[in-house]
Nucleic acid binder design. Sequence first.
RNA 1: GCCUGGGUGGCGGAAUUGGUAGACGCAAGGGACUUAAAAUCCCUCGCUCCUUUGAGAGUGUGCGGGUUCGAUUCCCGCCCCAGGCACCA
Length: 864
Amino acid sequence: MNMKYNPREIEEKWQERWEEEQIFKVTENPHKKKYYLLEMFPYPSGKIHIGHVRNYTIGDVVVRYKRMRGYNVLHPMGWDAFGMPAENAAIEHGIHPARWTYENIASMRKQLKRMGFSYDWDREISTCEPEYYRWEQLFFLWMYGKGLAYKKSSTVNWCPRCRTVLANEQVEAGLCWRCGTGVEEQYLDQWFFRITAYIEELLDYCDRLPGWPEKVLTMQRNWIGKSYGCEISFPLAGATGEIKVFTTRQDTIYGATFMLVAAEHPLVMKLVKGKPRENEVREFVEKVKKQDRVLMTSEYYEKEGIFLDTYCLNPLTNKKIPIYAANFILADYGTGCVMAVPAHDQRDFEFARKYSLPLKVVIQRLDKPLNTGTMTDAYVDEGILINSGPFDGMENMKALEAIAEYLESRGLGKKTVQYRLRDWGISRQRYWGAPIPIIICKVCGTVPVPEFDLPVVLPHDVALTGEGGSPLAGHRQFAEVICPCCGAPAARETDTMDTFVESSWYFDRFCSPHHAFEPGLDKKKTDYWMPVDQYIGGIEHAILHLLYARFYTKMLRDFGVLSVDEPFTNLLTQGMVCKETMRCSEHGYLFPDEAKDGKCCHCQREVTIGKTEKMSKSLKNVVDPDYLIGEYGADTTRMFCLFAAPPEKDLEWSDQGVEGSFRFLNRTWRIVMDYLDDIRGVAPFNGGEALEDNLKNLRRKTHQTIRKVAADIEERFHFNTAISAVMELVNTLYQVERPEREDLKALSVIRETIETIIMLLAPIVPHITEELWMLLGYKTSLTDVPWPTYDSTVASEEEITIVIQVNGKVRGRITVPADEDAENVKSLAVSNEKISRLIAGKKVLREVYVPKKLVNIVIQEQGK
RNA sequence: GCCUGGGUGGCGGAAUUGGUAGACGCAAGGGACUUAAAAUCCCUCGCUCCUUUGAGAGUGUGCGGGUUCGAUUCCCGCCCCAGGCACCA
């Protein structure tokens, strides 16, 4: 037998066969344990990139492994098909977003199939289809009915030249990415989902998701940002009224020497009304409003403020303190006003130094007293209260409670709980999204579209120019309707929904993807499949998508549609695949193949190498896997993506080393071919007879490898070490001396090893292993062969190496039987030739023995 | 700036619970095979030092400290990189 490994031929053959035999089609089966594995579905940007390949390969390995373990596995794929890039393509190239999207889907579907992923393609969904988003519109109506969807005024990025709303991504350094005009803030009435109605449950369950990475839960807890503190009223000086602040540091209230109000806060203009500074303050407020939100969070952002010619009174000291408007106070957190305690808060400290405002120390540190004249930073740690009236001498942590109660008892404040999480703004002034099913009638007000009129279908014929506001607003047939209540002419809501809404329930829809009856989810099926047992996706989604999906699940549960509290039992967050960005001053961001020798291939200008960032189409730093698949095949591409790093780690992309994966598959292929004729008629060794050393060692390695690979896949998804282990086994097999053709016992051990290698690799490289399996004489697909089991007696080592250290430094090694007792090991260590020389004449202070690992002999060192 | 992670040879990484640092692979160098090349197979490979060239000594996991018989692993401080920061998805 002398066949060469031909990946293209093998892969196409098996992909066809899997499809013909519908191997991956799945239905509910009450007699089997279900396993629902889901990878985050892609936005159809045009081509899959290495980040997708990595994500979907990880999922596919686990799916194929679980199948071999006997689970009834659901593994669907679909398209997060609404979104901005389609609209941008329409504006730039005149392609209709729908056409652009469907063409992209077609080519990406082809690429995914070429990778050999085991999806049940009958369940494919695209969120831009009315059959999908009609249910989302229904859920919106239910939410509206319950007050979970509501409208309020909030700000957007506004380009005054294009007269359009910009996404944060479309704002570059405070300027519109298309025309370079300075971006402004504008208020619009927009739709919100009341995620805060579920805030306590969302927080509570952060402690009840043991299958989630702790870092993701920590990020979500911090995002929700529950904090306990006080709302305190500061009366205005010389006027009626008061300013309410929220603080978690009421222990420092005696040190509050000025007041800060968010520049955008309506209170600012109210306070300076009619005062000489009114115009100056208005200019400041306008300037802050224009400051880009991204800029606001950047490093070169300078803290600025302006005095409002107004004072209020510190309610406990009754001292007059000045009120400033500032650009770093958040208008929509707490009350939008902050009592500034410059001695004990770093931001306040910097502000006070800039505007020469007084510092007052109210918490004294224990080691050396603070001096307001010489302090270079705020003191934010614990200490004893001073300058704090009746609370002097109290520990500040105790004063938190005491001062809160004191304020409460005198009616000056109350203990409150504050959250950082805001309600979810879902309005988008864009075309390519799910329409919001609402009608605005001059007579009846806000009127929900009647359920029997759903779906509100997105019209096809719109003009997309990137200018002049929401494209749907200009579509008369769509926007002009008859009010369902009074029959008068009315206007349709022309905002569309945030695409995060579609991705908040697609996993439910996958359970019954074609269910055409209300509410679009077949309860019997969602009850069988949900929750998702394993969800896999990029760490980038740790907060927004995952929090929204959790909220939406709870809400659908309360509407009786779902029976689960949480959508994802186990979560694996893969690290980002990163690559450097490249920019040309004329052509903007460049794809990797648009640059040659540091020059832009369009204009020969010098290319600027930017930061290394996660691959994304907008930065064009994407690597298309096609060249890898073409050169080496899907199996090599899959294996290399897994071998490069463990899944949770970020990866700076380089295809250096892909040859190694290809070589390994060739090496595996060759050794099976080499033995094929000799082992074809031989059954794998079953342990009946005693084995001589070399075969015994091979068999031990085989069983150890089964143990290691299963543990690596099941317990920690570390496919790189699983692959290493199989590589070692293949290396070991190469080392074994070729047995005679008549030595059936030896050949049966070889066959056991070869079958094991094939089965262990099956989830990782499914095509080559199917082919080899068939060549070994099997008729059924490897996809449903049971995962091999190991014999722990066979796998256990008879001899182990013990390291001998002297004062913590490795000085020798001894080999002992695995069950050697402690005393023997210690005396063997001490009597070892080299060790005895090293410790001769020295006093042994201590002997540490770590069973099966090492002996550390601690001796008195010279001169001590 | 704030929140969350990460940093180990020339490179990707391994060391799973505080116990042999560098598994496995890439690159590099050497050898075998070949008319030749490719492929394949074998060997070497953290760094420094040497008048014991060795089963040698020292040093080494971003930097500086600490705890411990023993630290890549735990603690404190710092530097750098990545993800998120609510309209990219």
